[in-house]
Simulated scan of single mutants.
Amino acid sequence: MGKELQKLRARKEVRKRLDAIDSRRDMCLVIHYSCESFYDIKDGRTPRVTSIAIREFESGQTTSFSIHKNAELKGVPLADITAKYDELEKEMLAEFYAYLKTKPDHSFIHWNMRDINYGFQAIEHRYRVLKGEPVSVADGKKIDLARELVALFGVKYAPHGGSGRLHSLMEMNDITAKDALTGAGEAEAFERQEYVKLHQSTLRKVDVVANLLDRVLDGSLKTKATWGDQHGFHPVAVIEWINEHWLYAGLTIVALLLGFYVTFKDMI
């Protein structure tokens, strides 16, 4: 199959998934989390998780899990969190996975949470390292909005810049960046043990992803995609389709020519 036809079919599949989300908003959860910067880790371990937020797409209600909240419940001062980090992190992740057990049929919309560096796998692995038993979310229940937007609008729909496409989309769509830290900002906050700031950033970003999803569904999302990118039109796709369906295309042309002949034969 030609490259442009593949893009058209991928866009069609994305639209089907988005229609399914729109029809069952009550079964969709938007998830985001913050963690230690994986770029700064030198010993090969997975990054420590600092906070996780899950927003019910239909109601907007948000459930969150964070290191500093668990520390507060146990009477651990913020200054002492580092010394008890593993213990607090394990308790936080235990609560997170207990929550997941109550949502076995829900779909999870996320932003780039797709590998062992940053994603569901990374959280699962971190919990196993802490001797916990994670609950796996089926791949079919994970929807990466970042990848869906590329399929819908093309890679140039938003500049990556220094802060990533998420922040670019926020700027283009007049969504306030208050509390939403950049990747570099989150890494700095972790080093400074500013766990409350990291939690606020996680809450803000899960709200932003839900906001962007809403705009995609109602067609109001502003991007830098061209008309052709937005509507999936490319002349090469027509050529590829003809090459793949040459017999059907040939019969169509013959039918058109016969139609012209019948219509205009008296004028010939």
Rank of each mutant, 00 (worst) to 15 (best):
L78W: 10
M27C: 14
G154Q: 00
Y195E: 00
D80Q: 14
V208E: 01
H199F: 12
P159I: 08
H125M: 11
H234I: 01
A210F: 08
Y99R: 08
E124Y: 13
E171F: 11
K16F: 06
A177G: 14
H199Q: 14
R11A: 03
F96W: 09
V137T: 06
F96D: 07
Q61P: 11
F108P: 08
G154D: 01
R45T: 12
N211Q: 09
H245P: 05
D105Y: 14
F38G: 04
S107F: 11
A189L: 02
I54L: 09
R215P: 15
K265G: 11
N243E: 01
F57L: 05
D80T: 12
K131G: 10
K7C: 09
Y195P: 05
E56V: 07
Y127G: 03
A53C: 15
I41V: 06
Y33W: 14
L100T: 10
E91M: 13
F96A: 10
A255N: 14
K42E: 11
P134Q: 07
K141M: 05
D22G: 12
S107G: 09
A71I: 06
L18M: 10
L93G: 03
E36S: 12
I31C: 03
G228S: 06
I81T: 04
S59D: 02
R9E: 00
L166P: 15
T46S: 04
F38M: 05
P134C: 11
H106P: 08
K156E: 15
H234N: 03
W111Y: 06
H110E: 00
L5N: 01
R25L: 05
K101M: 09
D86P: 15
D43Q: 11
F260L: 13
K224S: 14
T182P: 01
I67A: 11
R126P: 09
Y261R: 04
R45Q: 11
G183S: 02
K205E: 11
Y85V: 15
D266S: 15
M1A: 06
